[in-house]
Design a protein around this nucleic acid. Structure first.
Lengths: 158, 158
DNA sequence: AATGAAATAGTGCGATA
DNA sequence: TATCGCACTATTTCATT
């Protein structure tokens, strides 16, 4: 039956994409269950996942946490702009050791970076802003997060 | 030795915080290793993690993905504002089924929500903006992410 | 709540097609 | 790259403290 094979077989690329999407949705899924979901043997899945980790497609695994439970109930987005645009902008490196900063995005537009931060209180945010301004020599614009309808949703499996 | 006990023993609350922080940093860490890191038996860690999951402290587990590998190389932050402020604002519900939206934050300030989205191309972003505006009856301001120095860093263990 | 023991299940690796 | 087999390790439950 010429042709019937290629129509049934899932291409390798798609298998990797499916594995990645499954793990993005459930980071603790076992290789055995991934195998059942993809039609591969446990070993084959194991091999592919390790390769995806090595190639940097899978960057790591994380538990998603309710930050209020960790005494970090206040989230904010902070836009930063260099005070002296003639200086080289190495803000991400200067701010890397600040543990309250969860994410740092380099952006087009009015600001150079947008940070997502998690702190315990308005007072802690005030202190954090002072630290950021001092360490990176930037001005800041802060947007307080009032609530989080949803976040960190996995990419669609298609 | 009165007093020596309380100074050595880690309070239960702190044990849970430590487990949560460890899993936030490595979502696939085994109960055995968590036990070694906390000084608890595997069973005790297991019991605590299940309880943390049930109480919603641990919301889930996710593989962290290089989105370029999933053909979603373009990230953006989209601020949205209702066009008709007299209408009830249920934008998060109206946008929940849009798979490109990774996160939705309700914020104080000029806009009502800020979305983080992942798309394949500028064209896909254009389409997505049309979908968002139509579904939620909002105007949008889009900030393109040029690069991501870091994101999704776990909270500090302290 | 924590422990240790025991049954079940998953991981990781080497041989092999 | 896939599969199978096997030794090793982890998960999960339960009786006990």
């Amino acid at each position: 039956m010429p042709g019937s094979c290629t129509s049934r077989v899932i291409r390798m690329e798609d298998l990797d994409r499916k594995i990645v999407a499954l793990l993005a949705g459930d980071g603790r899924m076992s290789f055995t269950d991934l195998g059942k979901a993809t039609g591969l043997s446990t070993s084959a899945v194991h091999q592919r996942v390790k390769r995806l980790e090595q190639r940097g497609v899978i960057l790591g695994y994380a538990a998603l946490i309710d930050h209020t439970a960790l005494d970090l109930p206040l989230s904010a987005l902070i836009s930063i702009r260099p005070i002296d645009p003639s200086q080289p902008d190495d803000s991400p490196e200067r701010l890397r050791e600040v543990p309250e900063i969860e994410s740092c995005y380099s952006v087009a537009g009015d600001s150079s970076y947008i940070l997502i931060v998690r702190v315990a209180s308005p007072g802690a945010l005030e202190n954090l802003l002072a630290v950021i301004r001092a360490r990176a020599n930037v001005s800041t614009t802060t947007t307080i997060v009032l609530s989080t309808p949803y976040e960190h949703r996995p990419p669609a499996l298609t």
